[in-house]
């Protein structure tokens, strides 16, 4: 009797999960369907849901017409370097802000936050002049540096929240054992805040991966383009190859899903680490 009730509520729960997933994924599924329709089905009025036969032409043209793998490589290098820098720099700062005593902490926190309040469009022109003068246009670093800077505020704020949660006793016992500040930070604080660290990493990665404005203006050479700009390159003056663009967006989303699947294991391992503290 009791078992049955559990089962029913379990089934209801799974129905709920599947429903939520369907709603979330529907536009993306539609995008996938779009990417395998024929040109005629794509533009038909009213819309056709399921194509008669699977058409992979768009995928073919995404990789053949343009060096799309190069764009993915560029985006990957820029986004992963940004993530590493951002998480490193931010976790140093957050550790200090969350756990050490020194003057001016609140001022630093608000200064960091204020940076992210300016609209990107206002910053792009002065930054271009700076990048031009230091010869960093059309380089990876020219994107990595500003991306790191503009992902820092979220990273610092988020990590500071997490570092604050970690009980002080753990840190103190380590220090009593003779560990330096750096050692306690690397061995205790950083691993214990793993859910926060990996969340921050994913968020930084995706925001760097998706950035458009700086990438458009700073990196104008074809070989240095990132994915969002590359996708914006598909349309012509009077041409909207929506099939190609749908295929491209599916292609670039899948590596991200894989990365998330890898990272989310880290989040779980952080969970078990978190259990120690309780």
């Amino acid at each position: 009797m009791k078992k049955n009730r559990v089962n029913i509520s379990g089934i209801l729960f799974y129905i709920l999960v599947i429903a939520v997933m369907l709603i979330i994924l529907f536009p993306f599924i539609w995008q996938i369907l779009t990417s395998i329709k024929s040109e005629r089905e794509l533009w038909s009025i009213p819309p056709i849901w399921i194509p008669k036969k699977i058409n992979l032409d768009y995928y073919y043209s995404v990789f053949i017409k343009r060096p799309f793998l190069t764009y993915i490589k560029n985006s990957f290098i820029v986004a992963s370097s940004t993530t590493v820098f951002s998480v490193l720099v931010a976790s140093f700062a957050s550790y200090a802000l969350a756990r050490l005593h020194f003057k001016g902490k609140n001022i630093i926190l608000s200064l960091v936050l204020a940076v992210s309040m300016f609209p990107g469009i206002a910053i792009v022109s002065p930054l271009y002049i700076f990048m031009m003068n230091v010869h960093l246009l059309n380089t990876y670093i020219g994107l990595i540096i500003p991306y790191t800077t503009f992902t820092l505020p979220l990273a610092i704020w988020n990590l500071t929240t997490f570092f604050r949660e970690i009980p002080f006793e753990l840190e103190e016992s380590a220090r009593v054992d003779g560990a330096t500040y750096m050692q306690t930070f690397m061995r205790i604080i950083f691993p214990l805040a793993a859910p926060g660290v990996f969340t921050t990493a994913i968020l930084s990665f995706i925001s760097a991966w998706n950035e458009f404005l700086f990438a458009l203006v700073f990196n104008t050479k074809d070989m240095m383009r990132t994915v969002p700009v590359a996708i914006a390159m598909f349309p012509g003056e009077h041409e909207l190859p929506w099939g190609d663009m749908a295929a491209a967006s599916v292609v670039v989303t899948i590596p991200l899903i894989i990365i998330v699947l890898i990272f989310q294991r880290r989040i779980i391992s952080g969970l078990t680490a978190g259990a120690i503290k309780g």
């Binding site: 995706i206 458009f212 989310q264």
Partner: peptide, 30 residues
């Protein structure tokens, strides 16, 4: 794990592409 990955999909699509995607979804004809 699948649920987590699925929930992130919308955020992983570049903003300009997702905006165009919605423009198509809202289109008055197709």
């Amino acid at each position: 794990g699948l649920m987590r990955a699925a929930a992130l999909v919308p955020w992983a699509i570049p903003t300009t592409v997702s905006a165009m995607m919605w423009k198509f979804i809202y289109n008055d004809q197709l």
